Computed example of a mutant assay.
Amino acid sequence: MVAGVLCVLLAGFALKTMRDAGQFRSIAPHAPGKCKPVSGMPGAEDLTFHPSGEYAYVSSHDRRAAMAAGAPVRGDIYRYSLSGDTPPVLLTGSFQGTFQPHGISLYVGPTGAQTLFVVNHLPGHRNTIERFEVGSDGLLVHRATREGPELVSPNDVVAVDAERFYVTNDHGNPPGFWQTLEDYLQLGQGNVLYFDGQHFKKVIEGTTYANGINRSHDGATVYLAQAVGRTLDSYSRDVATGALTLRHSLALDTGPDNIELDAEGNLWVAAHPKLLDFAAYAGDTTGKARAPAQVLRLSGTDADMKVTEVFLDDGQQTSGTATAAVFGKRMLLGPVFEKDFLDCELP
């Protein structure tokens, strides 16, 4: 009798997990225009445009190669020109030490000076936020390393000025068994940190896979994507203290990843419509597994926010897309593991 009840409970839990992960969803691929693959920057998990739209910064790390080697593999930051007349430019060749970049954020000051913040993963579950300035030659000059025990599992970062930023911890535990348990039991143990120029402090707690983070152009609103929670949350930001107050939580029928804004302030969110497919794809050392990729455009604010699905692929054209960066009629799609990212046309 007890065994039968346990079997029913386990079956119910499995079905709920599959439903929550979007496994029963049908995928009908569509794209707004032609997409071309861009090589030379594998694992382009995060991309962001310079406000001019002339180029984008690309965070590249060949995670498949690292898995195969069982050891850290060097990643780098590149500059990708939209004109297409120059090859990608390596910007972090002078940076010393282990460099496995993840999320990035660009801050452009009133004078045009550029600061780039980069999440960096080190051996032994150490993590840092690296601060770079763009030199007169366009290359990145390392200026500071921000590190602390609060950086448990950092994923994405968003700058509010040349010194201060927010960073997401997608889990409350470092990689391993307990982190996996967080995901499958949908435990809210992640958080968001604020670095005030001197110290880290928690400003959001209890998140279920806090993933992408960004801010409105005026800096008054911070947007947070919770992948397992399947929400896009809008927070009012206290400019003086960095404190965040939840204003609205939008339920999404997908697992949102990174968030980018276009010039008009619309949000572009890359997402994983089948989270268990993505988990299998992420853990596949052969590179044969595929996971669907999705892009949403969100316009408006709070309860009036409108969601439009702009791109959906079954994993054949691209797989596991983490970022959709848009400027004008160009959309760059950055995958977590693929060798190429996509440069797409918008109507």
Rank of each mutant, 00 (worst) to 15 (best):
P51Q: 05
P51Y: 07
P51G: 07
P51L: 08
S52F: 08
G53M: 09
G53D: 04
E54P: 01
Y55N: 02
A56R: 12
A56K: 10
S59P: 11
S59D: 10
S59G: 08
S60V: 02
D62H: 14
D62A: 11
R64C: 00
R64G: 07
A66C: 08
A68F: 01
G70N: 08
G70A: 03
A71V: 04
A71G: 08
P72C: 12
V73T: 09
V73S: 02
R74W: 03
R74A: 13
R74N: 09
S81M: 09
S81F: 12
L82N: 09
S83R: 15
G84K: 08
G84E: 11
T86D: 04
P87M: 08
P88I: 04
V89W: 00
L90S: 13
L90E: 09
L90A: 10
L91N: 00
T92C: 07
G93L: 02
Q96L: 13
Q96N: 14
Q96M: 09
Q96C: 06
Q96A: 15
F99P: 09
F99A: 06
P101L: 10
P101V: 05
H102I: 01
G103H: 12
G103W: 04
L106N: 08
Y107K: 13
T111C: 05
T111N: 14
T111L: 14
T111H: 13
G112L: 12
Q114D: 07
T115D: 08
L116G: 07
L116F: 11
F117T: 06
F117V: 07
F117W: 03
V118P: 11
V119N: 04
V119T: 03
V119K: 06
V119I: 15
L122D: 09
P123Y: 07
H125E: 13
H125N: 15
N127H: 15
I129H: 02
R131I: 14
R131W: 00
R131H: 07
R131V: 15
R131A: 12
F132G: 03
